[in-house]
Nucleic acid binder design. Structure first.
Lengths: 367, 367
DNA sequence: TTGTATGCGTTATCAC
DNA sequence: GTGATAACGCATACAA
């Protein structure tokens, strides 16, 4: 049978109120009684009923993560970090896969938002208008919403340092002698792609006689890279920067199929450093994004910015929290800024085998 | 402010009981009133409070999935299928990553099992004893537990047809002229690895002058394959069967690094057909496992076997369910068998570029 | 068919 | 510091 708090109270010879306090507000009860009640609860195998607690406190002990695609290694890594951090703080995690459909994303946030203490949303392509609506109408006021890799007025977020990653990549290619560099972008409407394009423009401004070729927008997947590969070959660039690793891997594959050698003829740089980047040959030079840390930072910020009380059960020590949170940089934390805080996640170029010195001939333009 | 059922009742001019019935047991209320109440509820933006409902019905509307590693593409694919199916049936999904730690798996099942209507567990390496304990002591009697890719007395499960996949692979290699075939196994204690070894033995019994070389047990990851690759080269086999794709990819990588050509010198076959199998060069011949379907079947079986009532909100039509469930084969469904049902997921060898005709010389034994 | 009344298990509000 | 008691929002037994 199921053991209720009343059972514990009766067995311990105290009132239900005291039993409740002994377990969830220990400071309020005399040490002797407290220990006794806890002991009895343990012996009886008491497990608090979450529904009853939620009904009165309004808190669920659950967080929610919405991603476009769980099978995409980028989001899988984020999910892993979010899940780990949520659990460490005593939260369970509801995960929803939006199947790359922004409309479904909104719906999921609406449905799941009603039964959690906070929502983390990875939605690269949702419109700003829709995002506004989400924050305003869809969610209860006390359910904070946090964005991953996207800034939006009024919402806290955790973002990758897109511009700096691009800068590092461009600098690397320039140092190798590349002067004509292609950029294979992500989807139209992708916030991070816009950031990266801006970073690219900015970085190239500082370099002499560099020529940046915009190859267009592609689905940020392997298949998109296959299409992009042909444009790379046709464009006469000696190096290409891809919006992300999956795209870069597609480019790699297509170039190989066409007999274009990497890195001898063309150098390729990715972004994200997903596990597959080291599985291929040549291994992929890319920008490492600490995705697990990003996930952890997202949970931490959601808790703080939304002033979500941590589930008491297994909260970390403050030292542990500090250790995790330290590496990230707070944005807009100056006191003038009244908006919600954002955290910037630093990135680092990792040079592997897909980049090399620029070839003398004008790359693989012809057939 | 939050709209409660009483508000709806008042606005509709009916009692709370009628309002409740109009929304969650429509048949019990007169058509006219029913429509009216539903209309009013819609206008007021009424959202039932899940905690209150759970407190009285005992059902949460949540399912739970525990996997060893969310970043592993195998489990990511399963998670995606499970999530999609759960949502279609009106359930939300709690996802937990056990970090490859069987002890943590138990703990998670215990913690999360208390707040869900059913648990799906992917636990290749948990001991049978621990599994018994889970089913007996840890979970409430009315919270069904389902196993993925593992059979266990007393528990329903969804399993891959391991033996048949191996049989198809061996047959393929034999037809290509391979007579000395290595097997790079998964971890000791892995249920599916035991199955595959058994299947291997059985399949090879039927073939003349075939020689199966057991290369040992490896972590079912890329790194494990790197180690296995050296044994492949040293063993004098002309083909190797890997426990799974990640292992196979590691072998591929190591062989390439050592100058052993695939498939000219050695053929390699994987298992699972994860996305990366087509990203590498040569592309990997492997056994396709319909992981998304597996995930869906897991949810369906959990609901049926555990007699979990589907969340009413967005249940599929029976036609839709049949369409999904049909391809899987029911095991032990004969009426003699009193145990919980299991579903067998069929698999299919997909031949790609990593397998070819056996080389004349005794493979790449030397340096 | 509908309304009234009760209780699910817990925490919060008071008195004491 | 402790105990009685009232909610929380809903579903349901029972009465009408």
């Amino acid at each position: 049978m199921v053991v209720t708090l009343r059972d514990v109270a009766r067995a311990a010879g105290v009132s239900p109120a005291t039993a409740s306090r002994a377990l969830s507000a220990p400071d309020l009860v005399a040490p002797a009684r407290r220990e006794h009640v806890q002991q009895v609860a343990r012996e009886l195998g008491y497990r608090p009923n979450r529904a009853a607690r939620e009904l009165i406190t309004g808190r669920t002990g659950n967080l929610c993560l919405v991603v476009p695609d769980l099978e995409n290694p980028f989001f899988a890594a984020v999910a892993k970090g979010v899940q780990a951090r949520a659990r460490a703080l005593g939260f369970a995690l509801l995960v929803a896969d939006a199947e790359e459909d922004p409309r479904l994303e909104s719906e999921l946030v609406g449905h799941l938002g009603a039964q959690v203490d906070g929502v983390i949303l990875c939605s690269p392509r949702m419109t700003d208008v829709e995002l506004d609506r989400l924050g305003r109408d869809v969610l209860d006021d006390d359910v904070p919403l946090l964005l991953v890799n996207r800034l939006h007025a009024g919402l806290p977020s955790v973002v990758i340092d897109n511009a700096d990653g691009i800068r590092q990549a461009v600098t690397h290619l320039y140092a190798l002698g590349h002067r004509r560099i292609g950029y294979a972008g992500g989807p139209v409407g992708s916030w991070s792609d816009a950031q990266r394009r801006r970073g690219l423009e900015h970085a190239s401004h500082g370099l002499r006689s560099i020529d940046v070729v915009d190859l267009g927008h592609f689905p940020p997947l392997f298949g998109g890279g296959v299409a992009a590969g042909d444009l790379v070959a046709a464009s006469g660039v000696t190096a290409v920067l891809a919006h992300n690793d999956l795209l870069a891997l597609g480019i790699l594959s297509r170039l190989r199929a066409r007999g274009v050698r990497v890195p001898e003829d063309v150098s390729v740089v990715g972004y994200d450093d997903i596990p597959a980047a080291t599985l291929v040959s040549p291994t992929l030079t890319t920008v490492t994004v600490p995705l697990a840390r990003l996930g952890r930072a997202a949970v931490d910020l959601l808790i703080e910015a939304g002033s979500v009380p941590t589930a008491t059960e297994s909260a970390l020590t403050s030292a542990e929290r500090a250790r995790h949170t330290a590496p990230a940089t707070a944005l807009g934390s100056d006191r003038e800024n009244a908006g919600p805080p954002s955290v910037l996640i630093g990135v680092e170029l990792v040079v592997r085998a897909s980049t090399g010195v620029a070839s003398a001939q004008s790359s693989a333009a012809g057939g």
